[in-house]
Amino acid sequence: MSPHEDERRGRFSASSGNGGLRASITRRSFLAAAGVSASLLAVGGVGALTAHGEMLRPPGGQDERALLAGCTHCGRCVSACRTKAIGVASISDGLLEARTPVMRYSLGFCDFCGDCAEACPTGALRAFDVEAAQAGDVSACCVGKAKLDRATCLAWTSSSCNLCHEECPYDAIALNADGMPIVDEALCNGCGVCEYVCPVLSLRSYIGGTARAIAVEPVRAKEGEVS
């Protein structure tokens, strides 16, 4: 046997330093692993403490706890949305909320096709009855409720607009005796067409900001009222 064969059988060689079975990590790796573990604990703590549950979620994602537990931030729901209504929250919305799907009704509206819930492999978005939701059954799926800001609404301030009433696919916005739009919350399922068509930002661009006169807001499951 040539001498270098002893080198190869390292575990029997006296020069290996440690005779028997021994965990082999460097001090540095151990410290790095401990540091990463501590960071994970910190991330978990910060995330748990700062979660606020005020995001408008895609249909099927109204259970905020299930969504935050199941979302792997893969972006399949965002990609699957044919009306481009789903976007992602930024890290400025919260550590836990970062990269989770939110509705962006300035870019599109929801037609309750169910592709997003179908695309989600981890149950963050749960399946819902697509036909019932598209027919207007609010109990089948409700993204949120439309809320109208009378201070900026063109109709309420100058009687010059009826778009949300005309475009609402579920006839959830009626005109009162003076011809001003009022949201019927019993019929509203949060599809976002009203917000999508509202011209306030273009016709009133001087007021600044990014909020339209009518916007869908999430329903807080606990209190059952619009936030």
Partner: peptide
């Protein structure tokens, strides 16, 4: 390096 081997089946770097 504390030793040249890892736990059986884990490889040198697998532990951490």
């Amino acid at each position: 390096l504390l030793s040249k081997r890892g736990w059986p089946g884990l490889g040198r770097n697998g532990t951490s």
